[in-house]
Nucleic acid binder design. Structure first.
Length: 157
DNA sequence: GCCAACGTTGGC
DNA sequence: GCCAACGTTGGC
């Protein structure tokens, strides 16, 4: 299909791990509160593949694959006073934050830790690896996506 | 727990 | 619109 994009989303395993994701199968990716990341969430189209990354983990790294299940809609947590993601400046008419539904696809046979990602020449230019990269949602080039899938199917580095 | 690298907020 | 102060992310 033309102009299919690939993505990577970060999640903290203490909060929502790939195992949690595998149990839930489909989850709305709520709580992203960064405008650039939000714009990426809104650009996600149904069917596009998504790498799942564990941040704040030991070790951090890519752990699985998901797929966009539903186009982004206004993130309900921005309207929920009880939620830590409540945003008093957001209104139903003018929502600020959006979340797509993501569907679990698979857990990688072998998680690819960050230090290994950094060691791969084939991942030159991968945004995740750039200095100071903090975005929790980033686009991934096809070739980078495929490189990661390929090495994860091997037993070791 | 530290801190670099960002992003956001708000006074002016 | 500038920018200092503050908050957050996330690797280490």
């Amino acid at each position: 299909m033309a102009d299919m994009a690939c993505w990577l989303v970060k999640t903290e395993p203490d909060i929502f791990s790939i195992e949690d994701f595998a149990r839930e199968r489909v989850t709305d990716w709520t709580g992203v509160r960064n405008y650039q990341a939000r714009n990426f969430l809104r650009a996600m189209k149904v069917g596009e593949p998504v790498l799942v990354y564990h941040s704040n983990a030991e070790p951090p790294g890519v752990v699985g694959v998901a797929r966009v299940h539903k186009q982004a809609v206004p993130d309900p947590t921005q309207f929920d006073r009880q939620s830590e993601y409540f945003d008093s400046k957001a209104t139903k008419d003018k929502p600020r934050w959006f979340c797509p539904d993501l569907e679990f696809v698979e857990k990688l046979k072998r998680m690819i830790p960050l230090d290994e990602l950094r060691s791969l020449k084939a991942l030159d230019g991968f945004r995740l690896l750039e200095r100071g990269s903090r975005l929790s949602v980033i686009p991934v080039l096809d070739k980078h996506f495929n490189t990661i899938l390929k090495i994860s199917s091997k037993n070791s580095r």
